[in-house]
Design a protein around this nucleic acid. Structure first.
Lengths: 206, 206, 206, 206
DNA sequence: CATGAATGAGGTTTCATTCAT
DNA sequence: TATGAATGAAACCTCATTCAT
């Protein structure tokens, strides 16, 4: 039997272990969500234990996605927090940050590409709504800071962020094959380029 | 027993019936693909009969998606074929055409949002590759015409189209709830706005 | 693969095979319902095939119970249909018929003893209501004939049948151990005796 | 942490709390046994604590049933202890006492209706045998007093009690729906009537 | 061509119970 | 005594697809 995690800290560790293991199995796998049983086994835990830490299998992968998108938000925040340099420099820094985060979190886009049809059915209705609301809240605060840093009209930053994320998502899903290695085509370069185009147009503003 | 379809024409009719029924059931449904049995029943056919017309359940929905994206391409072609007016006017016409098509084919985006995780496992590997290749070919021809019409450097049109589609896809999937009616938020207006921003940026050139 | 049962007759045979097998496994077993998988295997059928013939696992055992109670009703009908002899002789014949049926359908009481808690959760809500209603209808017709044969006031026969069945049921469940072989105690003799007592009292009538 | 129960008295209180809570949850519930976790939570205790007071979940509900049947026995004893009045008057009093007890302990019959399939699998084999033996012993002493009071041949009283209980049990389980409110049908009146019939027949003797 | 009976893999979640703290 | 984290067995049913008729 795995050691019991009584301390707060130990419990958090265990939770993180489950998340990391789930991410790893998903990336190693064939594009489908690993079963709860496999995750548990890979963690050296019993199946039931996983359900102490997450109410639902879907909740595991939702948490993983939330972490990923939070990372994107942080990439934006890191630039708007200091807000130094020209507008163009800041934009470049933001885009670079986004691309960089994506490069380091390959599971994010693959999870995302699974789409509504896979994770949602694995979540309770309430959980799902809460999850989506949480995403929005998180984003809004960050978008306000973006408005300030770039001196945008209120609300513009939120739209730009949403659309940037949409572009990222959509580009991944448009990829001829889900793993980009077989074409002379670097996804991260493409994304950065597309984002530059979009931001330029959005800021040229009308 | 349903009447046997011997004539070429009858077979095509039956095929279209299956497609239309599948689309209808999907739109009426809860966001999951209707089962092969339901589609067959709604067509007043036996399960086996459906498999005479489509090799796979996934093939039905892939065909539906192909139809949808073909429509988007046509919206572009309608403008580039005549190629009259200023560049800005043409861009505006293209975007309007895209938005219009989306408005009339609500199943397209909903299918798309199901993501890789739902339709792909329902298709044989070869089928999938062929499908994606077909999409690309279709797009390339259209993109060449776009290059000409807007006097773009070769390849630019393809990128712009791919990224436009990516933006459309991603925005739909970012929607807080898959049906947008509950927010003071019109998806098609948003998409058109985002496309305008993107195209402005992309054409502003580097 | 098992031969396909296309003919009506073959389908009925297969249905009966499943029922008989389920009854046998239940009697051989430890008092719990055999799993759907075991029933299928014992029939040399695939799991899914069982679900073609019964919507639910519970439905199999409900059908078994219905068959059993139908047999009890038939035991009553066999006597009331001819209605010859004195009232006492008819009562004796009815009771003997009931006891005899029970002796030949040991699964009936064991199924019954499982109680509401086991079969009901294995049935859909509508199925359950339909099943209970069917039982009642079946009984009522038979009870009317009993009223006639014994010249009872209307409704008296139904009460007597219901209470006789209740007594049978209850006695089985009161058995010290669910299998009666280990005591010098013959369940069927006891039941017959108790039924005689009850019918005597009921007919002595007030 | 709940206060520790060291004193004998405190322990009994806690045991009773668990029993009462279990009965309440069962009655409020959907007809299935509440889980050990729910019982514990409703008592403001930890799951493990419940297992200090009861070896098994089944033991809780067995104890509840034992309490219930003990009450029925007491209803009989209250009459036989004084043994005054005519035989008919005593029988009427006994039956009234039984019906009255049932009315005040609705959980008894609902538990009983769960049948062998639900509580027994929740008890260890030895526990179960001991439980049943205990029931028998309890009943025997009471039956002897009944023999005396009504001047019955030895053993007759036991049979009559067993069969009365069987009738009660069986009638409850025959109820079209487990809650009798939806028919113009009063369970307790019916039971009393049936018991009268049975006792009349049994005493009419052969 | 049409039918529909047969197949069988596949995975989530619950919950009674134990035992280290 | 009290706690609550860990265990792990257990079984339902769906549904895409095939193939004998």
């Amino acid at each position: 039997m795995a050691k019991k995690a009584f301390a707060r800290e130990d419990k958090d560790d265990r939770r993180r272990l489950i998340l990391a293991t789930a991410a790893r199995l998903f990336l190693e796998g064939d594009g489908t969500l690993p079963s709860a049983a496999r995750i548990a086994a890979a963690c050296d835990l019993a199946k039931g234990t996983v359900y102490i830490y997450f109410t639902t299998k879907g909740a595991i992968f939702a948490a993983l996605q939330a972490d990923g998108w939070r990372g994107l938000r942080d990439a934006v925040d890191r630039v708007t927090a200091t807000a130094t340099g020209t507008r163009d420099a800041m934009v470049a820094a933001i885009i670079a940050g986004l691309a960089d985060h994506l490069r380091h979190h390959p599971e994010l886009l693959r999870l995302d590409a699974l789409g509504h049809g896979v994770i949602e059915p694995n979540m309770a209705a309430g959980e799902l709504a809460a999850f989506k609301a949480g995403q929005m809240t998180m984003l809004t605060a960050s978008a306000d800071r973006l408005d300030q840093a770039l001196a945008l009209p209120p609300g513009k930053g939120l739209k730009m962020l949403l659309r940037s994320y949409a572009l990222i998502r959509g580009m991944w899903q448009s990829l001829p094959s889900s793993d980009a290695t077989d074409t002379g085509f670097d996804f991260h370069v493409e994304v950065a380029e597309a984002l530059h185009e979009y931001w330029r147009g959005a800021l040229a503003g009308r």
